[in-house]
Design a protein around this nucleic acid. Structure first.
Lengths: 193, 193
DNA sequence: CGACGCCTTGATAAATGTCAAACGTCGTGG
DNA sequence: CCACGACGTTTGACATTTATCAAGGCGTCG
């Protein structure tokens, strides 16, 4: 049950009933929703190995879209229930999924009290952690995606990147590749929360 | 296992191991954390009937404090595990708790893309819903609590309240009691997200 | 080579924060 | 019961942060 999605293709839509879980085999995904006035809210980014589609309810509250060409494994919820009945360790655990989603939401919650530079620092550190400390850190998403996720504008994100580079905290190897040169300084900004 | 807490008393502290769940018999509680530079982050408010203390990990990431004089029922986690083994419907369900916490975190996450007035509108509607539509809506927490929860300053919160009252959306019966006069208008601000 | 999309940079505007003072309310003590 | 004082809230003037609008650069792909 592997499916390929092109960049920006929709995987499931807002308000649809929840019938599957999705595991990212390769690529990256965002969950999002466009508001009445054109603003866009991004709930989270999911990278290789992540499982998404669980939101605690019976209908999706956000849509999900491929950030770049991606391969997704679809997992029927019914088959999950079956494997769960075979034993506690057979397959995915709903509680683990819920706990993961909770952590994602809490990370984003912490942005409400943070400044623009703190939000970007937090974001970079999380992306770095997820790519297992590899350098450079790859950012599959556009600046617009990052901005919407952090609750900022692309201009502000861009300016913070520039400021970090001028301060020697990071190096922009390319638009989508960033090297972290002073993790301690970034951690420090993040540490406040 | 009922315990009384005075206003502002700490119920459990940040970084302590998670040993209990807590149910609010009467009163109100906030989960919070003071950052290095004095800013305070409030994760959520809990009112009568709510259960708090579950954060998905083995140690608390936030402290919890009574907002006003409160009576709390302490529930040992071990006793929970015992009752769960007796059957799926016996007692509290970890998945339900996790899903509730997820929703709380998602509500707060939605603030990152919202303006000050939208955040206050959302907050008032949630408080109203929780008090079962009673009028006036009671706000057990201080303006400072509200501001820290919404990621604003007390002055901004105060000004939005004033603006809502001048527009006829609400009526400030007293400092801690608010009557919602135009729920539709508030819903509309909130609806964007 | 040219056109398009995305990102960066700059100038200005709007929203929110900061600082300071006045106001109200509530509890306390005379 | 009234006066006073402390604290939390509101209001006002001003500063800062971030958004908006507009232009320019840069890489990509036809």
């Amino acid at each position: 049950v592997l499916i390929d999605f092109a960049s920006n293709a929709e995987i499931y839509s807002f308000e649809q009933p929840v019938t599957h879980l999705y595991e990212i085999v390769s690529g990256a995904v965002r969950t999002c929703k466009v508001l009445d006035d054109g603003r866009r809210y991004i709930g989270a980014f999911y990278l290789r190995g992540d499982i998404f589609g669980y939101e605690g309810g019976t209908r999706h509250t956000l849509s999900s879209e491929a950030i770049c060409a991606s391969t997704i494994r679809k997992i029927r919820l019914k088959s999950l229930a079956a494997s769960a009945s075979r034993g506690p360790d057979a397959g995915l655990d709903a509680l683990t999924l819920a706990a993961d989603e909770m952590r994602r939401a809490q990370i984003q919650s912490s942005f409400v009290v943070k400044t623009a530079t703190e939000r970007v620092a937090t974001f970079l550190l999380h992306m770095s952690r997820h790519s297992a400390g590899q350098t450079p850190v790859q950012l599959p998403m556009s600046r617009q995606d990052i901005a919407d996720y952090l609750g900022l504008t692309i201009e502000t994100v861009s300016r913070v990147f520039t400021q970090f580079e001028e301060s020697g905290l990071i190096l922009r190897a390319s638009l989508r590749h960033i090297v972290i040169r002073d993790r301690k300084a970034l951690d420090c900004m993040n540490a406040s929360a």
